[in-house]
Design a protein around this nucleic acid. Structure first.
Lengths: 153, 153
DNA sequence: TATTGTTATACTCTATAACTATA
DNA sequence: TATAGTTATAGAGTATAACAATA
């Protein structure tokens, strides 16, 4: 992923130490992290969305509908997503005991193990990315990012 | 350090003031910004990748191959991408004067105008997101993000 | 022969609309 | 009737492999 501002596509001025505007910096950082995630997921033959599904299921057993709302996708899209994950043995559908139209989606042990490995590998690569930052800077960055996430929630 | 993994979609506990670990904070921030971009692009019937293509073409006239390298995609994928953008009148292929196998891809005026509108709208939404941050925090965040981007380049 | 780009093929991901089966 | 989920269909985006034209 070359150096390029996401919103404008403009190249930052030459040699390192570039100071991007906040909008461009956030856009590029987003591409960077998203790319690392896609890449990491790919190492395990997973797409980003399949990885997110596993993440959601890590501590939840949602219905198809709830999953759709969680991921911001149509329920029809979820059907396919879960079909493919189920075919790989990563998740399973269980008929709801209270509503026979409804399923509860849960992770299998295989799925859980895979999710852990992906998360671990992803964390390692992010750690590598931030390795240069001083402890105080890392804390500061985490705090600022958390603040934005909170605001958007 | 694999507590709350946002890499995997885990949501922190509800009420504000959560202090995420750096890995999770970056992962969630990435999803957030990426989502805003996808949403903004969608307002103009563009996908994220089409928007990125327009961004690249903003100050370049690459060949198909160069575009592929820029975006980290196969040249075959670029063919389809440019086909669709060309069909919408956003970009055009021009045969290279020096190598008749090769094309130079450039933006049309229509494409340029659209790219500007998307970038403007995206910036506005990001500004909204960071509206709460003090000026010093914004500078700090931009600086830290830039540092990571530099490192990855 | 090597390179540039397209085409053929296959798969994932996504939405909309129509459907089935419950409720 | 209304809701949960699936299926049918269509299209974008991606890769790999085979191909054409040009170098």
């Amino acid at each position: 992923m070359a150096t390029r501002t996401a919103s404008t596509g403009r190249r930052p001025s030459p040699s390192g130490g570039d100071e991007l505007g906040l909008v461009d910096a956030l856009a590029q950082l987003s591409f960077l992290v998203h790319g690392i995630l896609a890449d990491t997921a790919g190492e395990f033959e997973l797409s980003v969305i399949q990885t997110r599904v596993l993440g959601v299921l890590r501590d939840r057993t949602p219905t198809m509908n709830e999953l759709a709302r969680h991921l911001g996708l149509d329920k029809a899209s979820i059907s396919g997503l879960i079909d493919r994950a189920e075919r790989r043995g990563l998740v399973q559908r269980t008929v709801s005991p209270t509503d026979r139209r409804s399923y509860q989606v849960s992770m299998t042990d295989t799925g859980r193990a895979l999710a852990s490995r992906v998360a671990e590998r992803f964390a390692a690569r992010i750690e590598l990315l931030v390795a240069d930052l001083a402890a105080a800077d890392r804390r500061r960055l985490a705090q600022l990012a958390s603040q934005l996430i909170d605001r958007a929630t």
